[in-house]
Design a protein around this nucleic acid. Sequence first.
DNA 1: CTTGACTCTAGACTATGGTCTAGGGTTTAG
DNA 2: CTAAACCCTAGACCATAGTCTAGAGTCAAG
Lengths: 148, 148
Amino acid sequence: MQTLTIGKLAKQSGVGIDTVRFYEREGLLPKATRTQSGYRLYSVADVDRLRFIRRAKGLGFSLDEIAELLKLNAAQGNRASVKKLAQHRLSDLNQKISEMTAIRDALAALVHQCSGEGSLKGCPIIEGVLAHETKHCPETGSEKRKNN
Amino acid sequence: MQTLTIGKLAKQSGVGIDTVRFYEREGLLPKATRTQSGYRLYSVADVDRLRFIRRAKGLGFSLDEIAELLKLNAAQGNRASVKKLAQHRLSDLNQKISEMTAIRDALAALVHQCSGEGSLKGCPIIEGVLAHETKHCPETGSEKRKNN
DNA sequence: CTTGACTCTAGACTATGGTCTAGGGTTTAG
DNA sequence: CTAAACCCTAGACCATAGTCTAGAGTCAAG
């Protein structure tokens, strides 16, 4: 079984060297075995693991969620827990998509109304942003502990 | 014309006090006039400005973009530039929405295939993430300057 | 005049996901 | 043997958008 240095691993899995070390620190990759001089050694299984991480990231999983997925996998977890995680991600995605779509539609309407000519006085886009009632302000993030 | 202290301004515009100061530092609000003892003083125009910022943020503009919008407004910019900015945001949004939708569909298919029962061996979600070819990996952010 | 509410500053800290630097040691090709 | 290319560590730094802290000054009410 051939072993890889960190540079080869990084190249083969399409991430940066620093990223590999970062993932190790964060627990997404197990501590690598080392040569007597301290160099990390990897196997092709690690290439797969890194690719898994990349793809899961591509599916919008956060590193924390990916760690959980990998843990479930390693611990011979059951499908129910994996499915739950994936469903959670799915509804999160649906939520975000509908929020963004609402925003997109509001902005598109404004852009559509704007001739693109003349001064800013009465520009529908500027006015539109000024005029909007709080409808289009999804969580502004300032509802927690205002003015101390 | 009545003036407001920072606390009143923050309350009336629905942001935190620290946020007001932060926006001033970042150039989204002009340097406030001060009392002789150094307290910031604001007018109702500043309430409008802050509300503008909130709403633009709600429309997905970044603080940098909002600063640009405000600058255009202040500089009596023309509609063409505002429209350009808004269109840029719009296509950005459309791009993100379609990426997220593709991801959502891929994940939904995986979840749909998974019974939610049994061990992880052969779980369609895990296998799905492992099997995916690079199709569903939009910019992974590691194409810039890999392995130094 | 004191107390509490309010404000000031600079700078540290949060979360996310890395990326880069300095100052070394190691390995490999010529 | 030497130089390039590679690897190591700890810790700083990036962007984003704030949030919080410490220590001090100010303002209004009782």
